[in-house]
């Protein structure tokens, strides 16, 4: 099993959610710690760049503030000093029947995702409903970023969205021994990004819903927009209908509200994270609106805010 920062994996090892025979630390790979490029050419982030470095990296903040913001909203400061951007993309799906100690899980009865054969959230379900909990994946996907994976069969670059699967257990389709080595973010080229995160507290907590937005305008109207949500399914959930709806429209309050309505439709929070899931479902719309509003106002003056 591979480990980068270990901020998510180590607690899970202590709770016996994984039982690998061997851990392979990636931290010695110095070349995966670099950020290269700029807003004009696009940026390449080594997988071991820490979330704190990403959040504070001036070229990155300038190029894709929404991505940097998302990195800066992950967990808490000491964990962002260790947790990596690669780790956050690959972060294990979460469920409050699963992210518990061995003894607790044994007591309630083991679940599908580890040691058991039923889903405790949806007992009739043949699949696992653990939640995708990456803060950075939504913006990266919305941006059309790519990741490079290196394995015994060589190197391949693919869209960030490609490896994710809508399955709480097999949420990431990497080939055996494949390592995510870098994330490539496209040139800024007028693209605006934003991320809105929902959590109970202002720090430490994982997202219980999140919305990442990337969009480009011609000065008046949206040329294209992509919206991706975190915390509402077993994978980062895209909302293509909302993106299509936005194309060609001015970002007025009404348009934003209508797009958010569309975006929230595919979101399916279940009762396996903090706070009530019906409420979380309602909040998705608000989060998408917030993200769109923030993306719209990144550049003062051009876009309609009526």
């Amino acid at each position: 099993m591979l480990v980068a920062g270990g901020t998510d994996l180590y607690p899970k090892l202590k709770r016996r959610q994984f039982d690998p025979d061997t851990l392979i630390g990636l931290s010695g790979l110095e070349e995966l710690r670099r950020v290269t490029g700029d807003a004009r050419s696009g940026l390449r982030l080594g997988a071991l760049v820490t979330l704190a470095e990403a959040a504070e990296h001036s070229a990155l903040v300038q190029a894709h503030p929404g991505y940097a913001e998302a990195a800066g909203l992950v967990s808490s400061p000491p964990l962002r000093n260790v947790g990596t951007i690669g780790g956050n993309l690959c972060v294990d799906t979460r469920c409050n029947y699963y992210d518990m100690t061995y003894e607790w899980r044994e007591s309630v009865g083991f679940c599908l995702k580890k040691d058991g054969d039923i889903c405790l959230v949806a007992p009739g379900s043949p699949r696992c409903w653990a939640i995708s909990s990456s803060d950075t994946a939504p913006v990266a996907i919305a941006l059309g970023a790519t990741v490079t994976l290196v394995g015994p069969e060589g190197e391949r670059e693919l869209p960030v969205s490609a490896p994710y699967r809508d399955d709480g257990i097999e949420y990431l389709a990497k080939r055996p021994f494949e390592v995510l080595v870098s994330l490539r973010l496209p040139p800024t080229d007028g693209v605006r990004t934003a991320y809105a995160k929902l959590r109970r507290r202002g720090s430490i907590d994982f997202p219980i819903a999140g919305a990442g937005v990337a969009l480009k305008t011609d000065g008046h109207c949206v040329e294209w927009a992509r919206l991706v949500m975190s915390g509402v399914g077993s994978h980062p959930v895209e909302a293509p209908a909302a993106g299509e709806f936005l194309a060609g429209k001015q970002l007025t309050a009404e348009v934003i509200a209508a797009a958010a309505e569309l975006a929230a439709k595919p979101a399916k929070p279940l009762d396996n994270a903090d706070l009530n899931h019906f409420w979380r479902k309602r909040m998705v719309r608000v989060l998408v609106e917030q993200a769109l509003e923030r993306a719209a106002t990144q550049d003062q003056g051009v876009l309609g805010r009526g």
Binding site: S76, N96, D99, M100, S107, G202, D205
Partner: peptide, 20 residues
């Protein structure tokens, strides 16, 4: 929930942080 403490951890039992 289901006869046991729903979240016996400092992550899921929410206590306010500095920013709260």
């Amino acid at each position: 929930r289901k006869g046991r403490h729903k979240w016996p951890s400092m992550l899921e039992y929410k206590s306010p942080t500095f920013v709260d």
